[in-house]
Simulated assay, not measured.
Amino acid sequence: MDTDLYDEFGNYVGPELDSDDEDDLDELGEVEDHVQDEAGDDDEEGGEGDAEDEAGTMEVVLHEDKKYYPTAEEVYGPEVETVVQEEDTQPLTEPIIKPIRKKKFRMMEQELPSTIYDMEYLADLMDNPELIRNITLCGHLHHGKSSFVDTLVEQTHPEIRKHLDRDLRYTDTLFTEQERGLSIKSTPVTLVLPDSKGKSFLFNVMDTPGHVNYSDEVTAAFRLSDGVVLFIDAAEGVSLSSSPEI
C-alpha cells in the first residue's frame, strides 16, 4: 500500500494531507502583527518624547540651576553628615592684600661706657660713607685677634680696664666662648680711631674665630669688609688659617 503512495523515485504521490505549515504561517502572521503594534506604540511615544525634547530646548536654564554632580546626600545617604570647606576661604577680618608694614625698632643702652670721643660725633661719622672702614681680623687660633680688640677698646674707653690681670675678651659675649677661651661667633665692634695725621675714621672691626670649624663665620665677615688684617704669632709662625680664602 505504501508503494501506491510513492513513486519509484520516492516522491509522495498519494492524496493531499493537512500540513502544519499553515499553522506555522498563522502563528508567524500573529507575531508580525504584534510586532507592528508595538512598533506603532513606540513611534507614538517617541513622537511625544521628541516633542518634549524640542520644547525643553527652548527653555532658558540658568547656570546656577544646572546640576552637574550629585549632592553629598545622594552619594553618602541622608544619615551621613558631610562638611564642605573651600581651600581658599579667608576670614573677613583679614584683608586679601595685606599692607606692607615696616617694623621699626630701637635698642638703647642706658649706661654706655665713657669714651674719648662724643657719641654724637660717632653718629655724625655714620652719615659719611667715605669715613667708614670695615675691617676683619683673621688668623689662626690664639694668635691675638681678641686681645688686639681689647687693646683698642681700652684705648677708646678709659673706664674699661683689665681686672685681676685677666684677659678682658670684650668680644667674647657668649658663655661658651668665655668658658672655653676661644671665639665662636664673629663679633663686630664700632670704634672711632685716628690715623697718623690725626684724622678720625669710623672703624667697624670684626673679630672672627680662629678655629677651623668656624670658618663660615670668617667667610661671612669677609663679604662685609673692605679689608682684612691677618694675625700671625711670632713664636708659632705661619699656621693654618680658619678660612680657605687666605
Rank of each mutant, 00 (worst) to 15 (best):
Y6C: 14
D7V: 11
E8S: 11
N11Q: 15
D20K: 13
D21F: 14
L28V: 01
D33F: 00
A39E: 15
A39I: 09
D42W: 14
E48I: 11
E48N: 10
G49A: 06
E52D: 13
D53T: 12
T57D: 15
V60Y: 07
V61T: 09
V61F: 03
Y68S: 05
P70N: 12
P70Q: 10
Y76I: 01
T82N: 03
P91T: 05
T93Y: 03
P95E: 07
K98M: 08
K98L: 06
I100G: 07
K102D: 12
K103M: 06
F105M: 07
R106T: 12
M107C: 07
Q110N: 09
T115F: 00
Y117N: 08
M119N: 08
Y121H: 10
Y121I: 04
T136Q: 03
L137K: 00
H140F: 05
S146T: 15
F148D: 02
F148N: 07
L152N: 02
P158E: 10
I160C: 04
R166L: 15
R166V: 08
Q178T: 07
P188L: 04
T190G: 05
V192A: 03
V192Y: 05
L193T: 13
F201D: 03
N204C: 03
N213P: 00
S215G: 13
S215P: 02
E217C: 03
A221W: 01
A221F: 02
A221Q: 10
L224T: 15
S225K: 01
L230N: 03
A235D: 14
G237C: 05
S243I: 13
